[in-house]
Computed example of a mutant assay.
Amino acid sequence: MSRTPVLASTRAELAALLAQASGTGPVALVPTMGALHAGHASLMATARARTTGPVVVSIFVNPMQFAPTEDLDRYPRTLDDDVALCAGEGVDIVFAPAVEEMYPGGFSHDAVDTGVSVTPGELATILEGATRPTHFRGVLTVVAKLFGLVRPDLAVFGEKDYQQLALIRRMVSDLCMGIEVVGAETVREADGLAMSSRNRYLDAEQRQVAVTLSRALRAAQERSRYGVAAARWAAMKVLKAEPGVELDYLALTAPDLGPAPAVGEGRILVAARVGATRLIDNLPITFDEAPLAPGA
Results as ranks from 00 to 15, higher is better:
residue 1 M to A: 07
residue 5 P to T: 05
residue 10 T to N: 04
residue 12 A to H: 12
residue 18 L to F: 10
residue 27 V to S: 13
residue 30 V to W: 04
residue 32 T to I: 06
residue 34 G to R: 00
residue 36 L to Y: 04
residue 38 A to R: 15
residue 38 A to L: 08
residue 40 H to A: 09
residue 40 H to F: 14
residue 41 A to Y: 06
residue 45 A to R: 15
residue 45 A to C: 11
residue 49 A to R: 14
residue 55 V to T: 14
residue 55 V to D: 07
residue 70 E to D: 07
residue 75 Y to D: 02
residue 76 P to T: 02
residue 79 L to V: 09
residue 81 D to Y: 00
residue 83 V to N: 00
residue 84 A to L: 07
residue 91 V to W: 07
residue 93 I to G: 13
residue 94 V to S: 08
residue 104 P to M: 06
residue 108 S to G: 11
residue 116 V to Q: 04
residue 117 S to C: 13
residue 122 E to G: 02
residue 128 E to M: 03
residue 129 G to K: 03
residue 132 R to A: 01
residue 140 L to G: 05
residue 144 A to K: 09
residue 150 V to H: 11
residue 150 V to D: 11
residue 158 G to Q: 02
residue 162 Y to Q: 02
residue 169 R to H: 12
residue 175 L to D: 03
residue 176 C to T: 05
residue 176 C to I: 02
residue 192 G to S: 06
residue 195 M to S: 04
residue 199 N to W: 01
residue 200 R to P: 07
residue 204 A to I: 05
residue 206 Q to L: 03
residue 222 E to W: 01
residue 227 G to Q: 11
residue 229 A to W: 08
residue 237 K to H: 12
residue 240 K to N: 15
residue 240 K to T: 13
residue 241 A to E: 10
residue 251 A to V: 04
residue 255 P to C: 07
residue 257 L to T: 09
residue 257 L to G: 12
residue 267 R to N: 05
residue 268 I to A: 15
residue 277 T to R: 11
residue 285 I to E: 09
residue 286 T to G: 12
residue 288 D to I: 09
residue 290 A to V: 13
